[in-house]
Design a binder for these strands. Structure first.
Lengths: 149, 149
DNA sequence: TACCAATAGTTAGTGTGACAAATATATAAA
DNA sequence: TTTATATATTTGTCACACTAACTATTGGTA
């Protein structure tokens, strides 16, 4: 394969990732979900793992610490998440969904699954598996030290 | 396939796209390329198509107009690109690479191809074709009106 | 105890992305 | 010609990504 052909994937990958996020965000907006796509990712992970620290959560969702700080700021301003001081370590917080946060996740989860499915029209379950395999391989190829998950 | 499984792809897609951009950006930086990954995309397209308007270029690289305006601002501040008033249409500009811009593209092109290849270790040419097919299908599934390319 | 490296989180600066609105100009219709 | 509409670009705002620098705290070690 020539070098020229190889350079296309980064363009298509970026373009598609942006389209997926943009499509979801538009649906979120027209449904008055009151959260962004990235805020949803954080809420969803908090609903599945209680009392995470920000560092633990950052590793889970693969966002860096400054980004996560701001997302938590926004979510707590909206009343979905609380920072509770860690009982032993005064540097750190335990993150909890509020009541409002829990019911937000419960109500949005099925709607968001529907939105996500739209991307897979005309594609097979086998395509889905291949896609995940290739994405993970690329990720690991570029992920110097640690081996990704 | 259950709904639960389906939701993973958007996470992996976003994570991988960010990793690809991040990896390239780090290489750009350690090589003192003096441009960002997105600025490179714009430069490269200008080197292949002279005298584009900003609208034409935006459609080519799939960036929206405000984003492109700002990238052109940065590239012209760095001396790589010039806005030349369109001879007939006073609303619009024709974009040109400067001498410096041309030599920048010439010198960076091979280095960037090498950086881009790193992602494809352990993957086959067939994977590459499948990957492009799936990315394009997803894009078109979500791209309401027009059919994308 | 005193020092020091590591860790948790925040803040600031720059670049990018999406979206809405504003400005200037062009073109078509009345 | 006047008016209406469409097009090209810019500006403003909010959100996110990445880097670097900073504060506070912890834990190990001399």
């Amino acid at each position: 394969m020539t070098q020229e052909q190889y350079s296309k994937y980064s363009f298509l990958l970026d373009r598609t990732a942006r389209k997926v996020k943009q499509y979801a965000q538009q649906q979120f907006k027209s449904g008055d979900f009151d959260v962004t796509v990235d805020q949803w990712l954080v809420l969803k992970n908090l609903s599945e793992n209680d009392a995470l620290s920000q560092t633990e959560l950052a590793n889970l969702v693969f966002k860096d610490h400054p980004t996560l700080t701001r997302i938590i700021d926004l979510l707590s301003k909206k009343g979905y998440v609380e920072r509770v001081p860690h009982p032993q370590d005064r540097r750190s917080f335990q993150l909890h969904l509020t009541e409002t946060g829990v019911s937000k996740v419960t109500s949005l989860r099925p709607e968001i699954h529907q939105i996500r499915e739209k991307a897979w029209e005309n594609l097979s379950p086998h395509d889905f598996e291949e896609f995940k395999r290739i994405l993970n391989t690329i990720y690991q190829n570029l992920n110097g030290e640690s081996l990704g998950q």
